[in-house]
Amino acid sequence: MSTSAPDPLPGLGLVVARYREDLGWLREVGLPCVVYNKGPELDPADLPPGTEVVALPNVGREAHTYLTHIIAHYGRLPRHTAFLQGNPFAHLAPPEEPRVTPAGLRARLLELAALNTPFAGLAWFRLRCDGLGRPHDLADPAKKGRWKGWGKDIPVARIFEALFFSPSPEEFIARASTGNMLVRRERILARSEGFYRRALALVLADPDDADNTGHAFERLWQAVFSGAGTAASGPHDI
């Protein structure tokens, strides 16, 4: 009777895109973690033991962080990777419900990993949009001045076509629109390292998000991690 060899790589790891957020919640989550820091220096004593901290320039939003990590670790990814913003908790439960705690996030990630989930957006909602990211709130007066692309549409269709060399669908259903998600290793490796380098080049061509390229990736992560095939008609939801 033959048995499959055990997975030699860790089962679940976190990748956190941090700017100025307090990362004290990582201690309670208690999972292996790489923090990519684009803001003030972190005190290692404030982080769980063994946390790796990598300094990055403050460009390209979390898409730059996630793509940089995938390229650097392409051949040694854990079975599941949770990609998280520095403060993911505002997006994990509807506003009328109690906020998800770090312990709750840990439990959810472990459950998704135990189910061998291929891809899961962690926000409580999905977004349905057209090729310009509409409807969106990027002209919200409260957000004016936060980044150079304020007030513009989101080039979802253009970035899709640049990534996949395929006509864009008319509609997209974004399942990881807040940039918080869990992805199985095989889903990541279904795309070549060259694909991720091409994606990173698109982000780096718009480092200040003046054209909202980073926002476009927030609406395309489910397509990026859908595997080798892509749909050419909408709504695009894989």
Results as ranks from 00 to 15, higher is better:
R146I: 06
R146A: 08
R146N: 13
W147C: 12
W147E: 09
K148I: 11
K148D: 14
K148L: 11
K148V: 06
G149N: 03
G149W: 01
G149S: 07
W150F: 09
G151A: 15
G151N: 14
K152F: 11
K152P: 10
K152E: 09
D153A: 15
D153V: 03
D153W: 09
D153G: 13
D153Q: 15
D153E: 15
P155C: 03
P155T: 06
P155W: 02
P155R: 03
P155Y: 00
V156W: 01
V156M: 05
A157N: 04
A157G: 15
R158N: 14
R158Y: 06
R158T: 14
F160P: 00
F160R: 01
F160C: 02
F160I: 00
E161L: 01
E161W: 02
E161S: 04
E161H: 01
E161Q: 10
E161P: 00
A162E: 07
A162S: 12
L163W: 00
L163I: 01
L163N: 01
F164G: 05
F164S: 09
F165L: 12
F165C: 10
F165K: 12
F165R: 14
F165M: 02
F165P: 08
S166Y: 03
S166R: 08
S166Q: 13
S166N: 06
P167V: 02
P167I: 04
P167D: 08
P167H: 07
S168N: 08
S168P: 03
P169C: 08
E170W: 02
E170A: 08
E170R: 07
E170I: 01
E170C: 04
E170D: 11
E171T: 02
E171S: 10
F172Y: 04
F172W: 02
I173D: 07
I173T: 08
A174C: 14
A174L: 05
R175H: 11
R175F: 09
A176M: 04
S177R: 12
S177M: 09
S177Y: 14
T178Y: 10
T178D: 13
T178G: 14
T178H: 11
T178K: 06
G179D: 09
N180S: 10
N180Q: 13
N180T: 05
N180A: 06
N180E: 13
M181N: 06
M181E: 01
L182N: 02
L182Q: 03
L182M: 09
L182D: 02
V183I: 15
V183H: 06
V183D: 06
V183L: 13
R184H: 07
R184M: 00
R184Q: 08
R185Y: 04
R185K: 05
R185E: 09
R185N: 07
R185F: 02
E186Q: 15
E186D: 15
E186F: 12
E186C: 10
E186L: 13
R187E: 15
R187S: 05
R187M: 10
R187A: 10
I188C: 05
I188A: 04
I188V: 08
I188N: 05
I188E: 05
I188L: 08
L189S: 11
L189Y: 09
A190S: 14
A190I: 07
A190M: 10
A190W: 15
A190D: 13
R191G: 01
S192A: 14
S192Y: 12
S192K: 10
E193Y: 03
G194F: 11
G194S: 14
F195T: 08
F195H: 07
Y196K: 13
Y196A: 04
Y196W: 05
